[in-house]
Design a binder for these strands. Sequence first.
DNA 1: GCCAACGTTGGC
DNA 2: GCCAACGTTGGC
Length: 158
Amino acid sequence: MNFWLFKTEPDVFSIEDLLACTQKTSSWEGVRNYQARNYLRDSVRIKDRVLMYYSRNEPSGVIGEMEVVRSGYPDHFAFDESSEYFDPKSKKESPTWYMVDVKYLKTLDRMISLKEIKSNPKLKEMVLVKNSRLSIQPVTREEYKEIIRMAGAKTLDV
DNA sequence: GCCAACGTTGGC
DNA sequence: GCCAACGTTGGC
């Protein structure tokens, strides 16, 4: 099992939006960065655990947990001219962009802010701290558990 | 809303 | 293949 952090702007897609989806499951479309695409296409697998992170939020931080329920497949929004994620460079026969499906697991008892993450020495190697731009990023098991612990969870199931 | 940091594009 | 110009992300 691998661990990840996915960024979203809550104005665009929030954890409440995910909860409102059928089976609390949604595609995670619109990633338009090659490094993030490579993770989605090649490395994100079913059963992987994902921290949902709110960017451009007050405060920014980790809001909840998700589980991957479908591994990488072509992001068909890139083919749809009416979509904000349309990309004429991506062709159906050789898709440029990929997405996965995620399912809601839980909302943290309290949000773990970026400020707290930055001030925790155990988290100083996180990609989030080192490269703030990447929207799909790997997290170690230890980092994942530390953030869940900071939110006050008494037991950890990972 | 500003703007630094980063990523992409395209002329040469 | 370099790199200037441009576009985007995201913290603040």
